[in-house]
């Protein structure tokens, strides 16, 4: 069984590697959105420092949402999703492999890039590790929760629907993620926020593969 899970994961990564432009879009979207704020609100360092955690988190949220349709759309179009459903392995685990591959390609680059962009906003050094950890815990939640929306909107016309469905569900991740970084800014411990983010991750790790698999099955009927 692990063979099949690994091969789903590796195939998605390999395919993404052959189509690098698709995945780099997410990454550059993140960088550009973050860079637009100093142009919009002005270059005043004290303001930027205050709003930086929020900006970085909202941008990460939008960027990972941009990539969501790609979780299942091409597999749905070319019949691969039918084959996954009919494979002997539980569909929920195969879907989990796909979500992990998706996170590796869209989420992880944001985790690495986040602190670098934070530095640009003049975030103090003690905030940067917290930003890193909050993104490390938070972006997998975004991929996991987003996959449910991606599954539910398979075959639905109009690509904006997934955003309307998923963004409200992203709110807790945004609050705890940005909250952890802001906590450092006001001199309190970020542990509480990070623990809650970890709890969201654990819950979505259990719920999302099952819910996404169910959504995919309904879409294939």
């Amino acid at each position: 069984m692990t063979d099949a899970l690994r091969s789903v994961f590796l195939r998605d990564v390999l395919q993404a590697w052959r189509r690098r432009a698709d995945w780099l879009t997410t990454f550059f979207f993140f960088i550009i959105v973050v860079s637009l704020f100093p142009l919009g609100v002005g270059p005043e360092p004290s303001i930027l420092r205050v709003i930086a955690p929020g900006i970085l988190w909202v941008a990460a949220l939008l960027a990972s949402m941009l990539a969501l349709p790609r979780v299942f759309a091409s597999d749905y179009a070319d019949g691969t999703l039918e084959q996954l459903t009919l494979a002997p392995q539980p569909l929920s685990l195969l879907v989990l492999s796909k979500i992990l591959a998706h996170w590796l390609l869209t989420g992880l680059p944001l985790v690495v890039m986040g602190p670098v962009l934070g530095l640009q906003f003049g975030m103090p050094p003690d905030m940067l590790p917290v930003l890193f950890y909050s993104l490390l815990l938070g972006t997998p939640c975004l991929s996991l929760i987003g996959a449910i929306g991606a599954g539910l909107t398979l075959g639905v016309r109009g690509s904006g629907v997934v955003a309307l469905l998923v963004l409200p569900l992203y709110i807790p991740v945004l609050i705890f993620g940005a909250g952890a970084v802001e906590a450092v800014g006001v001199g309190t411990a970020p542990g509480g926020h990070l623990s809650l983010l970890g709890a969201v991750l654990m819950i979505s790790l259990v719920v999302s593969p099952l819910a996404s698999a169910a959504a995919v099955r309904v879409a294939l009927e």
């Binding site: 195939r11 189509r19 070319d78 019949g79």
Partner: peptide
């Protein structure tokens, strides 16, 4: 109907 093949592989 669909061949379940990936164009890029």
């Amino acid at each position: 109907h669909a061949n379940a093949l990936k164009d890029d592989l």
